[in-house]
């Protein structure tokens, strides 16, 4: 239920004294009852987030073994279409969701970030699997990025090597939950509805020994850790 349709929380509202000029205060139950009778009371915000959250189109893009699970999630047995995400778009211009499914090598990282920049807002990112989260089994190697969140903002992390398709569906549901919580105006609005946030992620250059810079300090800082003896 959105706040625009319900200016005062139903529990706190005093049902005895709603002022008719300010608007009608009704409870969620009354609204559901009206819906059942064929009367839809809604707000623009509710309609907007409802629409957005049920048509999250992923980018048709896989990087390694985790991509196989992503493909499985889109096929008949797991059927991601139940949640409105069956339309895997081959172009970033038409996609809403970047599922980073697999190992991001340092050579591939600038391309992944470029794809992210090419996607129009609103857009979401899922880091699927140990590799996309932290480098996974290749973490101590020289050519694997230790987490895609060093360069682009990640909404949902799905651990596993690889995560099961059910886990990906759970991740998608978490994204939907997040979208449903959006406010469409004000300081709590998501980044794409605000003027003051620059959504562009800088693309690192290929350096002589490593990517330049190796991380984007805006998104990622090394954690504070004290070693146990």
């Amino acid at each position: 239920m959105s706040d625009a349709a319900r200016p005062v929380p139903a529990e706190q509202a005093t049902p005895a004294s709603p002022t008719p000029i300010q608007g009608v205060v009704i409870t969620d139950r009354e609204r559901d009852e009206l819906r059942r009778q064929g009367i839809l009371l809604t707000s623009l915000q509710e309609l907007y987030t409802w629409g957005c959250s049920n048509s999250v189109w992923p980018l048709n893009f896989g990087l390694a073994c985790c991509a196989i699970e992503m493909i499985a999630a889109s096929m008949a047995k797991f059927d991601i279409a139940r949640f409105g995400s069956e339309v895997f778009r081959p172009s970033p211009r038409q996609a809403d969701l970047l599922i980073v499914s697999g190992t991001v090598t340092k050579k591939m990282a600038p391309q992944v970030i470029r794809l992210w920049n090419q996607m129009p807002e609103p857009k979401y990112c899922i880091a699927m699997g140990a590799c996309a989260i932290s480098g996974g089994p290749f973490k101590q190697g020289y050519n694997v990025l230790k987490g895609i969140d060093r360069f682009i903002p990640v909404d949902v992390y799905i651990p596993g090597c690889p995560p099961r398709p059910e886990a990906l569906l759970h991740g998608l549901l978490e994204i939907q939950k997040k979208i449903k919580g959006f406010k469409i105006s004000g300081p709590d609005a998501p980044r794409h509805l605000r003027e003051d946030i620059n959504c562009h992620c800088p693309v690192p250059e290929f350096g002589e020994h490593d990517l330049e810079p190796p991380t984007n300090p805006e998104f990622w800082q090394a954690p504070t850790i004290v070693r146990k003896e």
Partner: peptide, 25 residues
Amino acid sequence: ILMWDEFKDYPMRKDYVEPDDYEWE
């Protein structure tokens, strides 16, 4: 073929020094 063209090192040589991007393990 595997590393980018600007890369200067040869990573499979015994004396290769990898970039110091260690993270907590």
